[in-house]
């Protein structure tokens, strides 16, 4: 077969089914199936601030997803260039729940091990401190200057609250997904 021909039969026909299975744990099936009514009008992409500077094309992503281009959707960088601004979600004339669908696809990518190091780092902060953006010494001083407690009344101030957050993330399996080592309190295999 010539190099530029794709046999549709050879694409991953179970991709969409898997997507529904994973997504329906959180979202309604109607919402997930909304993507099937996409008419490729490009209103999403024309509305997308990311598409104006990156290769990300929401329209194309959904087309690939519906046809079963599993690898290019889940392994590519494009999926991660959406800032979840919901502009396309608001405007889509077919009522496709774009941003939520992208989030489910990202969950699929992550579960297959496609998680950027930078994102593992962000996740590790929460596992370690309860905060995605933890306090710094400099800010602690600043807080005092403003008449606030040096540590905010959050997991930063309540170790048992931090343990509760960590317990939840163990129960949901987040630590495994991220590859977090509770002994070292660091990410595993960090390059």
């Amino acid at each position: 077969m010539p190099a530029n021909i794709t046999r549709i039969n050879e694409l991953n026909s179970s991709f969409f089914k898997d997507f529904i299975e994973i997504g329906k744990k959180i979202f309604s099936e109607d919402m997930l199936h909304s993507v099937e009514s996409c008419v490729q009008c490009g209103c999403c992409t024309g509305s997308c601030p990311s598409s104006r500077r990156t290769a990300f094309r929401t329209r194309k992503l959904f087309r690939e997803m519906l046809l079963g281009f599993r690898d290019s959707v889940l392994e590519g960088d494009d999926l991660w260039l959406c800032t979840t601004c919901y502009t396309c979600y608001e405007r889509c004339p077919r009522g496709v729940k774009t941003t939520d669908i992208i989030r489910v696809l990202r969950n699929m990518a992550v579960s297959q091990g496609h998680m950027a190091e930078a994102h593992r780092m962000t996740a590790s902060y929460v596992l370690r401190t309860g905060h995605g953006v933890p306090v710094s010494e400099e800010v602690q001083k600043l807080r005092e200057e403003l008449g606030l407690s040096s540590l905010p009344p959050t997991t930063h101030s309540y170790p048992e609250a931090l343990r509760a957050v960590q317990e939840i993330l163990k129960l949901t399996g987040f630590d495994r997904i991220v590859g977090f080592d509770w002994k070292t309190m660091e990410l595993r295999g960090r390059k």
Binding site: G42, C43, C48, S51, R59
Partner: peptide, 28 residues
Amino acid sequence: MRGRVAEIFEENNGNVVVRADDTLLGMV
């Protein structure tokens, strides 16, 4: 032009700019 217009904005000279995905080229 095959693409639904996403938005329109105005320039100072009164002209309007139509923003859309050219879905056939995949270019915004």
